[in-house]
Amino acid sequence: MLLEESEIRMLIYSIYEKYGYDFSNYSKASIRRRLIRILDLLEFNNLKELQSWLLKSNENFERFLNEVTVNVTEMFRDPTFFKSLKERVFPYLKTFPYTKIWHAGCSTGEEMYSLAILLEEAKLLSKAQVYGTDINTNVIREAREGIYPLKEMADYSRNYVRAGGKESLSNYYLAKFDSAIFSSHIKQNLLFSYHNLVTDSSFNEFNLIVCRNVLIYFDRELQAKVFQLFLDSLPPLGYLALGSKESVLFDKQRDQFEVIDEKERIYRKNGL
């Protein structure tokens, strides 16, 4: 199906007017693809039908938001990244009596629980506050619950071992029927809340910001803006961790960071 740019722009504008969510600087190619998928899923013939449906009620918009954002994630996605985080960044975190970490775009929380488990094994979790934020309140609710399909755990366990996990992943959850329910001990210092990288500003200063495979959905202009937001939210020598293919996007601000691990995309803000 071919969607006209002008139709897409119109839809995006009407969403912004009514709900305050601004998708105008999202990747055009990605938005187009998501919209085609949504039309198919909800059985609409064109964007006009979709538009009048989603302007009708908040519930409809919530449903739309769930589908237009990508919430595909897994535990210890890219195990070597988590291993590097543990080896290169945790020693720095250990030098503080208390650390603040921001997981921007946490989605349903799988990567955040992965981080929490490694922090726990390094005895860092009890003296850390880990903030997970997302623009989608439905996924935040799921993240807060920390309940995942049990059938995924075999894969996640393999990732966990490759990430340098010390225990058995099953130590951290309770298997009940077909669910893996993560323990409240792991949840202790995790805080989930709504935050929109597009429209909201910095809300704290963090020793480490993790933002993986979120900026890929933005255009270059918005990517640069969010980078500034991260810069503003990092103290000197604070760490920034990106997705494994996200390096080109911050070329302009590159001189403000030191490369800690080129391959795993871990950077540190320059000192004063």
Binding site: S27, K28, A29, S30, R33, R34, V70, V72, T73, R77, N213, I216, Y217, D219, R220, S244, K245
Partner: peptide, 21 residues
């Protein structure tokens, strides 16, 4: 195209990666 990503092309001939379904 990197493993575990889909590749999309933008109108300005740049690449966009996604981890969608």
């Amino acid at each position: 195209v990197p493993a575990n990503y889909h590749l999309l092309i933008e109108s300005d001939h740049t690449f966009s990666l996604t981890v969608s379904e």
